[in-house]
């Protein structure tokens, strides 16, 4: 396959006069799909999308010391003034925390200190987990826009909606440039502006056991799809599978969480949030999504 001059972007011809611009961001394969576009145009639009994905990743990654999150983590206990975009994300996190009665919590990332989902059988002890639970709770964070104080020992992580947010941001940028159909896909979280002339976008949902084989093929005209699930991240011990969806109130994996939840909504952020919160509802995931009046697909 032809690789273009920009080393981080690749251009591929797909069947049906479809061009795909591909790149890596946020530890996921990302692509922009353009029907009936020419190659220079595709590269130009693709770099707009990639730049935005990389920007969001650079700015909010919890793995980078030079990100806003890194900066906040280095100044725990201090009152900090944050920029407008970070402020909007914190507002959003606060509203999600409130809407879900604390089930969706951007401070629950500290649990990673005890849980490492590497496919092994290393289950933490009750004591390990119990030590971390007091460090969770968005209500303990002092957030009065634009000032934030993150208490000692706590962590912030926008990973729960960062990728979906990046999709929506890139979508907005591209929608200003292009009226013809396009689809942005960041690691399975995607959004399309309108259907291609051939009818609808065909989207495969991964089967949890297999990365290669699609379990379901969906048709999407426009709007967003986001998928949450634990297809690759789990622990197995004594025949029990521990999924990576952790209850912020107990510190333990949610019992009976579906393998994967896909939700269709108008924005990717909305779809992603609903999928994640559905997973957090465990055995009640279907019941929860039915109440939201959205299209969804659950694999158990």
């Amino acid at each position: 396959m032809k690789s273009d001059c920009n080393p981080s972007l690749s251009l591929r011809d797909l069947p049906g006069e479809l061009l795909a611009v591909r790149f890596e961001a946020m530890a996921s394969p990302c692509e922009l799909l353009l029907p009936q576009a020419d190659r220079p145009q595709a590269l130009e639009l693709g770099s707009l999308v990639a730049e935005e994905a990389w920007r969001v990743e650079r700015k909010f990654s919890r793995y980078r010391d030079d990100s806003v999150i890194g900066w906040i983590h280095q100044r725990r206990g201090t009152r900090l003034e944050v920029d407008a975009e970070t402020g909007s994300l914190l507002d959003f996190a606060a509203q999600c925390y409130e809407l879900t009665d604390g089930l969706f919590d951007v401070t629950s990332g500290v649990l990673r200190r005890a849980w490492r989902f590497d496919g092994s059988d290393r289950i933490p002890t009750d004591a390990d987990v119990a030590r971390l639970v007091p460090l969770i709770g968005f209500s303990k964070v002092r957030w009065e826009r634009p000032c934030l104080t993150l208490p000692e020992g706590m962590e912030l992580d926008f990973g729960g909606f960062g990728k979906e947010y990046a999709v929506d941001r890139a979508f907005d940028i591209l929608a200003r440039q292009r009226a013809e159909p396009f689809l942005i896909n960041f690691g399975g979280d995607l959004r399309a502006n309108r259907p291609p002339h051939s009818g609808a976008w065909q989207i495969g949902i991964e089967r949890p056991e297999s990365v290669r084989q699609a379990a379901a093929l969906l048709e999407l005209a426009r709007g967003a799809l986001a998928t949450g699930g634990d297809s690759h991240r789990f622990l197995m011990k004594d025949g029990v599978r521990y999924g990576h969806v952790l209850n912020p109130r107990t510190g333990w994996p949610i019992a009976g969480a579906p393998r994967s939840v896909t939700v269709a909504a108008s924005s990717c952020t909305e779809a992603g949030l609903l999928a994640t919160v559905a997973l957090l509802h465990g055995t009640s995931a279907e019941k929860f999504l039915k109440m939201q009046d959205v299209r969804f697909w659950i694999l158990r």
Partner: peptide, 13 residues
């Protein structure tokens, strides 16, 4: 929660 979530994501985006 969808309506609240829509309002929140509209504000965010």
């Amino acid at each position: 929660i969808r309506r609240g979530l829509i309002a929140a994501s509209c504000a965010l985006l």
